[in-house]
Design a protein around this nucleic acid. Structure first.
Length: 577
DNA sequence: GCCGTTTTCGGCCCGACTGTTTTCAGTCG
């Protein structure tokens, strides 16, 4: 069993226990274990055999969990999990994701109406059976039907770039209103998660009623889900939910901290506050003794009172950032201004839209010192991939463009296909004449893990390969990553001085955040590139930077933060780290 | 189930909104 499967077992047990109404703290433990395993950068199954203390020593993992893990790894299942599945059908678990339904109601519907899945629930609601139950009236029944519809429609979350664009629109609109003194997006948008379920907007206003009224006039609201004195929830035309909260100025920092989350991060902070004799809420930090508010206007104050430095929002996932903050070991995260060039982009020679010169102009406008032109190779014939002859012609054109001293150095490169046997799609002779070779997989995504891993590793051992682009091949919401042993890939990359890409294209973000962290831990260098297909796309770098920051990446972990000379030494494999 | 500069037992985060409850439970974030 791999980590993902192990994690799913604990999550499912937590779901079932929750419906059964068992000890909430035991449930919380299971959830924590699921999260820990899901975000681990090494395999639980292998570690259990080789060095079990590597697992046992993780805070949150105790004796009970160790027993279950051993059982799962040895037999492929665990008795308690099987027992729970016999008690309650797993088909009812998705019901917990329907808005407005929690464990109590799911249990109630099962006990009294034998509702075992989404379809049963819809039938029961439509036939008016739900309203016969205690505590459920006509309104709740209608709300549930609506929630089922929403659940089916937006089972998926929206991509970060889309969420950022919507939240920017909303913030810009609110910013103009006189009733509103301050407005900020919080939540997973602020943490820059790769996908976002809803958008949280915080508003400071001394006239909350007026502010709420104006907020609800935002053009594009399709539906108002809830509305009170201090908050409102709406659905926008595109189906995205936006939650607004109105606050007083004095509590804005505490609210920003609170609504930025993550939930897991906040739980730990509150426990910490309590230990220190404080109470932390969205209204501030209060001294328990006399309920005096000691902080609230800024986030810095809140963290300072908890004896911590300000933790960057991208790190707030309870993945060790609080411990790191405590010991002064928070990383100095990379910023977009650290980037000095973009090493992956296409031109009209293959599937890009713009010329070499146009891309160079865009690079110059971005303040870059260098860019690399890396069009596709001939295996991608349908989009005009370059063969040896055309690549040589392009190289000559780049030489000419550099001669004209455009104010930016244009590197000659290629994105060469890694063929199914792990060889490259172009001859060494031509590749050796380039400044940079980016290699990637664009075919046969369904190979098994061992084959795919060997395919990629073979390519990484090729002495001319510099960067492995979009290493897992995933497309957010459209294509799963191919099955590959990333730890093996990273080890080979490090040993052969190959750099892994953080592809900033909004539906790729590949490597993703956890993989970035894994790379850093394994000593693998990264390159944050856009894979631009037109001049306007160089700005995608923001999303790659966000992903890297979530992966604890510093400027020194990324090769395109270096000056040209240092970069060239890495590309020549004379230097690494 | 996990954990320990109060503790190996007894804790384990906080507040708002909704609906239908006549005093609060369930859910959400």
């Amino acid at each position: 069993m791999n980590n993902r499967q192990l994690s799913a077992v604990f999550d499912e047990m937590a779901d079932i226990l929750e419906i059964k109404g068992e000890n909430p703290f035991r449930i919380r433990s299971f959830r924590r274990v699921a999260e820990i395993i899901a975000t681990l950068d090494f395999g639980v199954a292998e570690s259990l055999v080789q060095d079990a203390s590597r697992i046992r020593d993780i805070p949150g993992i105790g004796e009970g969990t160790m027993r279950k893990l051993e059982e799962l790894v040895k037999t492929g299942q665990c008795e308690e999990h099987q027992e729970l599945r016999r008690e309650l059908p797993p088909s009812m678990l998705p019901l917990l994701s329907v808005k407005g339904l929690g464990p109590k109601r799911v249990k109630q519907f099962w006990n009294s109406l034998q509702v075992a899945n989404l379809e049963d629930l819809e039938t029961a609601a439509r036939s008016g059976k739900l309203r016969t139950l205690p505590g459920i009236g006509e309104k709740t029944e209608t709300a549930i039907l609506k929630a089922i519809e929403e659940y089916r429609k937006q089972a998926g979350r929206v991509r970060l770039d889309q969420a950022l664009s919507v939240s920017a629109d909303v913030v810009a609109y609110l910013h103009e209103l006189p009733e509103i003194e301050r407005v900020e997006a919080a939540g997973s948008v602020r943490r820059r998660k790769e996908t976002v379920g809803d958008i949280d907007i915080l508003i400071a206003s001394s006239a909350p009623a007026e502010a709420i009224a104006r907020v609800l006039q935002f053009p594009g609201i399709r539906d108002v889900l809830a509305q009170g004195d201090t908050k409102a929830s709406v659905i926008l035309g595109r189906g995205l939910q936006v939650d607004f909260r109105i606050l007083e100025h004095e509590a804005f920092g505490a609210a920003l901290q609170y609504f930025t989350g993550s939930k897991e991060h906040n739980v730990v902070l509150r426990e910490r506050a309590k230990r220190l004799g404080y109470k932390l809420s969205e209204y501030g930090v209060f001294r328990i003794a006399d309920n005096a508010r000691l902080a609230g206007e800024t986030e810095e104050e809140v963290y300072r009172l908890l004896q911590l430095p300000l933790i960057p929002p991208e790190l707030r996932e309870n993945r060790g950032e609080i411990e790191a903050a405590e010991t002064g070991e928070l990383p100095e995260l990379i910023r977009v201004t650290d980037i000095r060039g973009d090493l992956h982009m296409h031109t009209e020679a293959s599937d890009g839209k713009d010329s070499i010169q146009a891309m160079a102009q865009a690079g110059l406008a971005a303040g870059y010192q260098y860019i690399a032109i890396t069009d596709h190779s001939k295996a991608l014939a349908m989009i005009g991939g370059l063969d040896e002859r055309r690549l040589l012609e392009q190289a000559a054109a780049i030489d000419a463009a550099n001669e004209a001293s455009p104010g930016i150095r244009i590197l000659k490169g290629v994105e060469v296909d890694i063929l199914t046997d792990g060889t490259l799609d172009l001859s060494d002779e031509v590749l050796s004449g380039l400044d940079i070779v980016v290699a990637s997989v664009h075919s046969r995504f369904n190979m098994n893990r061992a084959e795919m891993t060997e395919r990629v590793c073979r390519a990484l051992r090729h002495p001319l390969v510099n960067i492995l682009a979009h290493p897992t091949g995933r497309l957010l919401g459209r294509r799963e990553p191919y099955d590959i042993d990333l730890e093996a890939v990273m080890t080979v990359a490090r040993d052969h001085h190959v750099v892994l890409e953080v592809n900033s294209y909004p539906d790729r973000l590949d490597l993703k955040d956890l993989h970035c962290r894994m790379a850093r831990n394994l000593g693998v260098l990264l390159s944050i590139d856009t894979d631009s297909h037109s001049a306007g796309m160089l700005g995608f770098v923001d999303y790659g930077i966000a992903t890297a920051r979530r992966g604890w990446i510093r400027a020194e972990d990324v090769i395109n933060t270096r000056g040209l000379d240092s970069l060239m030494r890495i590309l020549k494999k004379k230097e690494y780290r």
